[in-house]
Design a protein around this nucleic acid. Structure first.
Lengths: 151, 151
DNA sequence: GATATTACATAGCCTGCCTATATAGTGTGG
DNA sequence: CCACACTATATAGGCAGGCTATGTAATATC
């Protein structure tokens, strides 16, 4: 049997760390003229391909008018194109442009570089701990999703 | 010597986990009629005691007008009181009310309960990994803060 | 073919953030 | 001791991102 200091998760410390990390990640996007909601839409279009307004809104859990507005902004910036669906004149197909894809790739790469640079300032043991915990944190997010739905 | 799979931090997965966790934590506050910026102000007042507008703005890294606005909202809700500083007629002293303190305590307790409930759905090994990584994540946030300043 | 439904757009409102500027109190040099 | 500079907060105006309610146009359905 392993003998080590018993450590339990301190909710406040976990909350604080997550909040601070998120703030830095968001700030990094904003410094490059992007935003978290915009990047989420671009990533969704990259992953799911051309999509309708309503489907994107559902996938990202925002209202349809919010998604309409976001897509109009992204279209003005040339990062997506909006075309009327052939076969359903009501529907809009949003699709990444080459520029949009390039911007997204660049933002993602830059964000990874930031995290790697941050990790580089840590001890090996801290990096190991974070690497080991990453899947667990994803599962914690899954669990919280589940609790939300039951609410 | 321990023999185990060598794992490196995957920046995208870490970003995704942090982003999702933050989204749930924020949603949980919003469900209770609060917001992340408002709670940050209340927590600051709890930790530092009565404070001036400018000091709060600096501590939370927002502009002075943003803090002025936030404090007016919190005052309308009865969560803080704003009094003119005795000794400097220009300055405003913002201070938690008993109600504000109670609301903050309740929100913090509820957030902890949410996290504990989520953790309860995980394996012992996941909980251990998260407990072990929490200080490392805080240090990662510190490191990113440092990188930001050097920028 | 009239009507119901669906997909998106628009209107109007809120929070939260910003910069620029006004106002009012404090402090200071002459 | 008063004009002037400075400092603390407030106000004005603007943008992003979120919401609900509702309008409009295309499609489906009976």
């Amino acid at each position: 049997m392993e003998v080590r200091t018993l450590t339990t998760v301190k909710p406040d410390l976990l909350n604080s760390a997550v909040t601070r990390l998120f703030a830095r990640l968001r700030e990094h996007l904003v410094d490059q003229g992007a935003s978290v909601p915009a990047v989420r839409v671009l990533a969704q279009l990259r992953d799911r391909g051309p999509s309708r307004v309503t489907d994107l809104a559902a996938a990202l859990q925002v209202s349809q008018p919010t998604m309409t507005q976001q897509l109009h902004r992204l279209a003005e910036q040339g990062r997506i194109v909006r075309t009327i669906d052939a076969g359903d004149g009501r529907a809009v197909r949003a699709e990444l442009t080459a520029q949009g894809r390039a911007v997204l790739d660049s933002l993602v790469a830059s964000r990874s570089a930031l995290l790697v640079a941050g990790l580089d300032h840590l001890d090996e043991s801290d990096r190991d701990a974070i690497a080991a915990a990453t899947p667990a944190l994803a599962r914690l997010a899954d669990a919280l999703d589940g609790l939300r739905i039951q609410k």
